Simulated assay, not measured.
Amino acid sequence: MEKLTGKWALITGASSGFGIDFAHALAERGANLILVARRQEPMQQLAATISARHNVAVELKAADLALPGSGLALKQHLDQKKINVDILINNAGCGLYGPFVEQPLAATLDMLQLNILSLTELTHLFARSMIQRGEGHILLVASIGGYQATPTYAAYGASKAYVLLFGEALHEELKPHKVKLSVLSPGVSATGFLAAAGQRTTPYQRLFMMQSRPVVDAGLAALFCGKPSVIPGLGNKLTIFGNRLAPRSLQSKIAYQLMKN
């Protein structure tokens, strides 16, 4: 992994899960950090830990990216501070577990705003600046759920399919401008995602669960090597490969059974 001394890395969803490990991994390589999440206190604790271990600058911004226009407000805030973002880690996201019609519609729309619209907004705003400077890195966090329809995660899986296809397309569009963009598609990971989504861990998930840091390292390695996308973990790779051999209708039936509590 290349050294990042003096570079600024913006990490969304920085108060928990992958966000914490992205912060540590980038600080270890000398990057200054901009941590963004709804909750200020966990970010303050993370910033204190990182500052004690690494000689990097850490900026905090409490923001709810599930609100329309929050991406533009964040970009304007950083412009006022004259901070140019060299690395964008579009990590913020959430899921909802259960039958689609039983989920509160407002919660589903908030999830789609965060997973799709805010991610798109941030990518557009910061990619334009990177193109003007002739360099930059963007990592979008999708999910292996984006490779197939997943009953009980219907809207979430669809949102991650958008991230996957959107990111792979932008990888080609941005390449001539020397801006690298990669998509990270984790499987089930030890991040607290399942609890927040409202799901108890299933036997399938316990079997394939990965720790957070190896997932983060795989994503960053792909980003700096210029790969369009990466699926971390042998089990996750085999799952997606197996899906390609099965009819789509069968994929959904299998996914439904595996996701049931």
Rank of each mutant, 00 (worst) to 15 (best):
K180C: 04
E59D: 09
I231N: 13
L258V: 11
T12P: 06
P214Y: 09
G233A: 13
R248D: 03
V58S: 11
V183H: 13
D110K: 15
R128G: 01
L67C: 09
Y97W: 10
H77V: 02
L10W: 11
I138M: 08
I50T: 02
L245R: 04
G93W: 08
Q113M: 12
M1G: 14
A246N: 04
T108I: 11
Q148C: 04
V179W: 09
E2N: 15
T239S: 01
A62K: 05
L164F: 07
I20M: 01
A246C: 06
K227L: 14
L117Y: 08
A155I: 03
M210N: 09
A48W: 06
G93H: 09
G242M: 12
Q80R: 14
F22Q: 02
L258P: 02
Y147N: 00
V215E: 04
A169V: 13
A169Q: 07
L117S: 13
A196Y: 09
P232S: 04
A14E: 11
V56K: 08
S70L: 08
G19K: 05
L72I: 12
L245Q: 00
K237C: 12
Q211K: 15
S15V: 06
M111P: 00
L140P: 01
A255R: 00
I231Q: 05
L122C: 07
L181N: 05
Q45H: 14
R206I: 01
P176E: 02
V216R: 05
E2Q: 14
Y97A: 03
Q257Y: 10
N261H: 02
G145R: 02
A27S: 09
V56G: 11
Y256T: 03
F22Y: 15
G93Q: 11
K178H: 14
L140R: 06
I87L: 12
Q211P: 05
K7S: 12
P186T: 10
V101Y: 04
L194D: 12
T12E: 10
F18S: 06
G71H: 07
A196R: 15
Q251G: 00
I87Y: 02
L65Q: 10
L125G: 01
A197M: 07
P186H: 08
V215P: 06
Y147P: 03
L139C: 06
G219V: 05
R200K: 15
V179P: 11
A149Q: 03
G93L: 13
V58G: 07
L164I: 03
G146I: 05
K82N: 15
R53T: 13
A196K: 15
I34F: 11
L65G: 08
P214G: 09
K7E: 12
H124S: 03
G17I: 11
G146L: 04
S51Y: 02
L112Q: 13
H171P: 10
L114W: 08
G69L: 12
I231Y: 04
A27F: 12
G157V: 01
R213N: 01
L105C: 00
Y204D: 15
L174N: 09
R29C: 05
K7Q: 15
A142G: 03
G6R: 13
G235A: 12
Y97G: 00
G235K: 14
T191D: 08
Y162A: 09
G6N: 11
A73P: 02
L67T: 12
G242C: 13
Y97K: 03
